[in-house]
Design a protein around this nucleic acid. Sequence first.
RNA 1: CCAGACGGUUGGAUGACCGCUGUUCGCGAAGCUAUAUGCUAAUCGCGGAGGGAGGAAAGUCCGGGCUCCAUGGAGAUACGGUGCCGGGUAACACCCGGCGGGGGCAACCCCAGGGAAAGUGCCACAGAGAGUAUACCGCCUCGCUUGCCGGUUUCGGCCGGGUCCGCGGGGUAAGGGUGAAAGGGUGCGGUAAGAGCGCACCGCGCGUUUGGUAACAAACGUGGCAAGGUAAACCCCACCGGGAGCAAAACCGAAUAGGGACGGCAGACACUUCGGGUGUCAGGCGUAUUUCCACGCCGCAGUCCGGGUAGGUUGCGUGAGGCGUUCGGCAACGGGCGUCCCAGAUGAAUGGUCAUUACCUGUUUCGGCAGGCACAGAACCCGGCUUACAGACCGUCUGGCUUU
RNA 2: UGGGGCGUGGCCAAGUGGUAAGGCACCGCUUUUUGGUAGCGGUAUUCGCAGGUUCGAAUCCUGCCGCCCCAG
Length: 126
Amino acid sequence: MLPTVLRLQRRPQFLKVAGTRQKWVAPGLILQIRRRPQDEQNETEAVPEGVIRLGFTVSKKVGNAVQRNRARRRLRAAAGEVFAQHAALGCDFVVIGRAATLKRSYDSLIKDMQASLKGLKAWREA
RNA sequence: CCAGACGGUUGGAUGACCGCUGUUCGCGAAGCUAUAUGCUAAUCGCGGAGGGAGGAAAGUCCGGGCUCCAUGGAGAUACGGUGCCGGGUAACACCCGGCGGGGGCAACCCCAGGGAAAGUGCCACAGAGAGUAUACCGCCUCGCUUGCCGGUUUCGGCCGGGUCCGCGGGGUAAGGGUGAAAGGGUGCGGUAAGAGCGCACCGCGCGUUUGGUAACAAACGUGGCAAGGUAAACCCCACCGGGAGCAAAACCGAAUAGGGACGGCAGACACUUCGGGUGUCAGGCGUAUUUCCACGCCGCAGUCCGGGUAGGUUGCGUGAGGCGUUCGGCAACGGGCGUCCCAGAUGAAUGGUCAUUACCUGUUUCGGCAGGCACAGAACCCGGCUUACAGACCGUCUGGCUUU
RNA sequence: UGGGGCGUGGCCAAGUGGUAAGGCACCGCUUUUUGGUAGCGGUAUUCGCAGGUUCGAAUCCUGCCGCCCCAG
């Protein structure tokens, strides 16, 4: 049974993840992580236990709208393969696209993602 | 064949695996009920079918639809916009046809193209003079003085001439020079020299006639040159414009706090602006429970109502719609008939990966190999404009060369 | 979506129709034993890009490009 993967949908959620200052920079992407504390359940946005939440950010530095869309789609496809299998439970992630995301091959992108999870000690064997 | 002008179409293809998001159908969950072999507005899951970025989706420069706000009607002022004429259109700053001006051998292209005899302003430098024109050089004429020439002489001068120089008065605007621009141009006549002073042609203004719906054009007559440029300087004239925007707007509506209504329970005293408020004691609640003390909070507990936040739903795609055909029109476009339904997201889908292939470039041992494959992503919708764009294809026309 | 502003030497910038000030920086010279200071001289501008109006445009008009800010 694979864990549920939800999407981050609000700007404050993204800011919370960025506020932890925990990140890993890979050639094809940047990964930010926030481990949700247990006592967050009594807040308004209660999230069930063991759920992985994921958000994507691609800034205007990457290129025009077409290039930004393409970068986000490649990251989303790669994350769909990696995160449900190997990401630590109960964490929020933000994946940031870089200019190299467009040029980098798909295999390298997946390896970048796996290395980032291991680097942040959020790797979980399937 | 080469060079060019104009108009239009298109914006790679196929397959495999894994996904995303609407629509629709079926089943199930779930919910409701009269508990049955019933029902389905919304929600979730599974399966089937079918749909899923553009010519510019872009810039947000114009014009509309739609929604709300304001507004009794009409007008004026201010502000902003538009600006040859006619037509098209829901409307436009758009489009079509025509006129005028400019460019090109031509096809064809470009033009904010109303008013400068209503007024104001500006026209640097240069130049004599820059807007009631001017007079520096020059040209002509008149006068004077000196020199000069001729005559005469009593040798002091006098008379005449007026080529040269100078001074003064007048005439002139042809020539020189300055400038972006010097107050019509060329020629002939004319004159002391000149000048629209006169004449011819051209240009310009005015009038009439003819053609044209009109802009305008042509012809004839006439004026005798007056009226420099600039309105993308102020301005004048004509016409148009209420404001804001789908994060508009409508509906549903949690928690918390606050507001109101209802009846129930609830005390006394003091002060007071007599609605109520404040203080003391009493009372209630909380600190697991009970009693006392202490502390904190306070009218208590309940039912209902309205506004309204988060959030959700609608707005939201049948439309000034696409395609085909026919009729009218030079055309833009309009009418008729037939046919089709064609994206709907909201941290935002429309894809990811791989393979084959088309095309282009380089290289080649002619087997291949390497690289590239434009501009660019809907966000309420529509009509335009502007800007970006690798290539491919089609049609019409112009000039040149060659051949027949 | 709506609104506003800016773009001038390498940097900061003035100039609102008449041919682009000033300061810092840079280079050279003088002064000084040397360096600094001080003084003198010099360099470099398609005025963001393109078109138009005008005799003439950084300036006026139109269309683009880039950057910044504000409101929701």
